[in-house]
Design a protein around this nucleic acid. Structure first.
Lengths: 342, 342
DNA sequence: CCCCAGTCGGAGAGCGCTCTCCAATGACTC
DNA sequence: GAGTCATTGGAGAGCGCTCTCCGACTGGGG
């Protein structure tokens, strides 16, 4: 046992010798690449089991030019100090992607990129053939990485539409519709004086959520509603809510562009003695873990992240498998999850 | 440009031809493996730049038997539904490891393992040479993965000491000391009737934190303090606090074995109209993002996760680099971070 | 009975790299 | 001036695998 574990691991050649066939035949059995006589197949399988053979990935990818690995690139996490995984929304995207890959026996190479150097390094790493393609979660809208990947000819799929058109696949949400969903619920609850805490306005998703909110609110025959710009963090949600309360003390409904900011709003409302949802109804966005962790739990616009992640994986694997250059994108519909806050 | 990106990527051979030297010389320049005449070095570098050469990882690792990749294995996350990354503590461990690896230009292969099948798959993947070693974060104490890795001869480093002795390196915290730190602070604040919410008692770290707490409390001349067992989740912290309050309404200090449970305790205390820290002081453990996100922010026993993660990476890379079988472990000291809750 | 198509195993080239040898050169000693 | 040795470039084997050929064998039709 100990001796065996020290020895050179068994190769195809070894298996072939034990099975009394050629290397090619063993390879064919393993890859089911052509018909092989069932009897011989069985012999080979037994030889594989006996030798404890396991294919050498490096040798295989040297000839196939495939690694069977894909990269999960999180770009622009710099300001989060590398703790981006802990962000309830991005963490969920990452987990979703990982879970979607798992049934296919693929483990992602996890790469962070924020500075120009790390971005270049990531692209190099990919060009060196360490992965067959990349699933990219870019936090900032102006991220240059997607364009670099296109230039380097690395098959990629983005989470969220790139700011400027690019020949690259992506998966996105109908954010505008999400804003509308929130308004409809607030209106149905009888809210008359609503406000919204938007995400950073240079992010397309933020713009869309805000636009959807405004359109729907005005569409219900209301005057324009106030809004404050946040940056998707808990703190910014608190600050925004403070300001909203100061400027519009009679507000009775708030739509925040993500759960973290909604959660911050909840803190401030409580500190000011407002009951949620009785005095003020609050709706978040994402349906991340922050939504269920909040007290009261957040009513929120859900992004089907797991489905979106699975779609990203499918799009990428299709693209890699078919070797075509075609670019396909998919847009998902949000749904409203009603909990206690509205 | 477009034509170039379609063509077969340049190889060492191509660079050698352009530079007018042999393949071996180019390889030597790239790997700085032996003295090469500075003039020739320069010529080679220029040829590399000109051709846009990038080494083929597969070919390289076929001969070196190294991949330059290491695996980050999260084991036993099943009950977290794959969202383990979002857990403020484990997410921090993962981020810490990733950040520690980054300066070395290494991107980890992210692997989850919870069922027997996935565990076997992970070990197979590792044996196939997809990574040179593994950094393992095992959630449950009885996790069989570490033993499997030892058996498969995969160089590994664990986060936290394995329950039963195993010839495997690990990085851990002096949990007992952490419990003591919490007690000392509570006592210094003048708390007289304290209680603790422990983690699951089959986890060594939970036992140690509890033991440290008890020893220190009794050491200060107090009678035994009550405790309730939790399971490290927010919900369990809430339930435990409810029970504590019911059975010991006069409690004036609580030590929870992690921040999430402390956060749950905070919710319950507020619901019961207790002011924190005036009526009841609360101390958490970990110093995870949950500590700063709580209101009031949690005073907590900090684990230096970033340092611990960096140490894991160092231990593993040393072990891989030196090819020795030696097993080294490091235990870190906790510190108390004082915020508002105590 | 022969021929041809179809089926399936084996031989061998080659993927891109590293690394061991070997040879050539020059420096230095005696 | 010859021998020794350190220094540095090149040739070529070989890492473990896939895949294209090729050849052997089978069966069925004319």
């Amino acid at each position: 046992m100990s001796a065996a574990s020290q020895a050179r691991p068994p190769t195809l050649e070894d298996v072939a010798r034990v099975a009394g066939v050629s290397r090619a035949t063993v390879s064919r059995v393993i890859n089911t690449t052509r018909n092989v006589d069932p009897v011989i197949q069985e012999t080979v399988r037994r030889a594989i089991a006996k030798t404890g053979y396991t294919p050498n990935t490096a040798a295989r990818s040297l000839v196939t030019r495939r690694t069977g690995t894909i990269a999960l690139v999180v770009s622009g996490a710099g300001d989060f100090g590398g703790d981006i995984l802990v962000d309830p929304f991005f963490g969920r995207v990452a987990s979703g992607i990982i879970s979607a890959l798992r049934p296919r026996g693929i483990y992602p190479l996890l790469m962070f990129a924020d500075t120009p150097e790390t971005r270049a390094h990531v692209v190099d790493h990919l060009r060196q053939g360490n992965a067959d393609g990349a699933l990219v979660v870019a936090i900032h809208s102006a991220d240059p990485l997607p364009a670099m990947l296109v230039a380097a000819n690395v098959p990629s799929v983005l989470f969220a539409r790139p700011t400027r058109p690019l020949p690259i696949s992506f998966v996105d949400l109908a954010h505008r519709e999400g804003g509308r969903l929130a308004v409809d619920h607030l209106v149905a609850r009888g809210c008359r004086r609503v406000a919204t805490i938007s995400g950073p306005l240079d992010v397309p998703a933020s713009q869309e959520r805000l636009a959807g909110f405004r359109e729907a609110w005005v569409g219900h025959g209301n005057p324009e509603a106030p809004f404050v710009e946040g940056n998707f963090t808990l703190d910014s949600g608190e600050r925004a809510m403070e300001r909203l309360l100061a400027e519009h003390p009679d507000v009775d409904g708030v739509f925040a562009a993500n759960d973290l900011m909604a959660s911050g709003a909840l803190h401030v409302l409580r500190d000011h003695g407002r009951r949620v949802p009785d005095d003020v109804a609050v709706i978040g966005f994402d349906d991340s873990s922050a939504a269920t962790a909040s007290r009261p739990a957040l009513t929120t616009v859900r992004q089907p992240v797991e489905d979106m992640a699975a779609e990203m994986a499918s799009l990428l694997l299709d693209r890699i498998g078919r070797q075509d250059r075609r670019v396909t994108s998919v847009v998902f519909e949000p749904t409203l999850v009603v909990r206690q806050s509205a």
